[in-house]
């Protein structure tokens, strides 16, 4: 495992300038599509507002259910959905487009490996969308409920957890994108995947409130690392009661996914078809 990580580090050092350029390109592209991003934020505001109304109605007169207060619940929903908006990489669409147009041939010939190009681009995407927080946070504040974390530890752990959440989100997205190397006809599949993945992140219903059988399944999936784990840390109700356990589950997935992606990538590379060359 350490060899994988050190290999990653040396690639980073060798190709630093190239990778920074990928990130820059991704940032410029995000800027071109800024209207889409703004619309996305409005849609997130609409969702947050509905979830707030819905859960308030579900709580009714009760101020607490299963040890979760209504305020904790509303802050959870607000942050989880905000996070989902900002941490939704769209590498899968890029991969499909490059393959469809035959451009993938150029990508594969570059000195930086294709997965590394994608990661750099994903980083650029996130950096470029950060200024949008200026609109998103007030919208979330008005339509949902936001306040600072209860304790300083929770705040610090949340930041670490958020970074891991971004890594897992990107890995999962890249993995789905790599399927394009085998087939380009996957719109229906991708729609289903997105729905199941979004649900399994716990952003609509936190794992606390899922029926036992469903929770047992969702706990075995990596998606909880994208929203449920960081946000439950933020509202001070982390998985199995310990921040450390929650972070460990996340770290496990982030590392496990490195191996899965490498395994799939080697096979995808062999499958490559350059279209229209």
């Amino acid at each position: 495992m350490s060899s994988v990580l050190s290999l990653g580090m040396s690639t980073l050092r060798r190709n630093r300038e190239g990778l920074i350029e990928y990130a820059r390109m991704a940032m410029r592209r995000q800027y071109i599509y800024r209207t889409n991003m703004a619309m996305g934020i409005v849609l997130t505001g609409i969702t947050i507002y509905l979830l707030t109304i819905l859960w308030k109605a579900a709580y009714g007169d009760r101020s607490e259910i299963d040890g979760v207060s209504i305020t904790q619940m509303l802050v959870y929903l607000t942050i989880a959905n905000l996070q989902l908006r900002f941490l939704s990489p769209e590498l899968d669409g890029d991969i499909e487009e490059r393959i469809r147009e035959g451009q993938i041939g150029f990508d594969l010939n570059r000195p930086v490996s294709y997965p590394m190009q994608l990661i750099a681009g994903g980083l650029g995407d996130v950096i470029a969308t950060l200024p949008m927080l200026v609109i998103a946070v007030p919208i979330a504040f008005i339509f949902g409920e936001l306040h600072a974390p209860e304790t300083a530890e929770a705040g610090i752990a949340y930041v670490a957890s958020l970074a891991l959440a971004w890594i897992v989100a990107m890995q999962m997205n890249m993995l789905i994108g790599l399927v394009s190397f085998w087939t380009l006809e996957m719109n229906g599949f991708r729609m289903m995947y997105r729905l199941i993945a979004n649900f399994s992140t716990g952003a609509l219903i936190p794992l606390w409130f899922m029926p036992d059988a469903l929770r047992a399944v969702v706990q075995l999936l990596p998606f909880q690392a994208i929203a449920y784990i960081p946000v439950s840390i933020y509202v001070d109700n982390p998985a199995s009661g310990h921040i450390a356990t929650a972070l460990l589950i996340q770290a496990f997935w982030a590392i496990a996914m490195i191996f899965v992606i490498r395994w799939v990538w080697v096979r995808a590379f062999r499958q490559t078809v350059i279209q229209g060359g």
């Binding site: 289903m192 409130f209 029926p211």
Partner: peptide, 22 residues
């Protein structure tokens, strides 16, 4: 058609969970 159908039913699952839980 099948994926549209499954998509809508999966969307209903979250409503179903909340409504039956409470």
């Amino acid at each position: 058609i099948i994926s549209g159908f499954l998509y809508q039913l999966t969307g209903f699952v979250s409503v179903w969970i909340i409504v039956s839980r409470f």
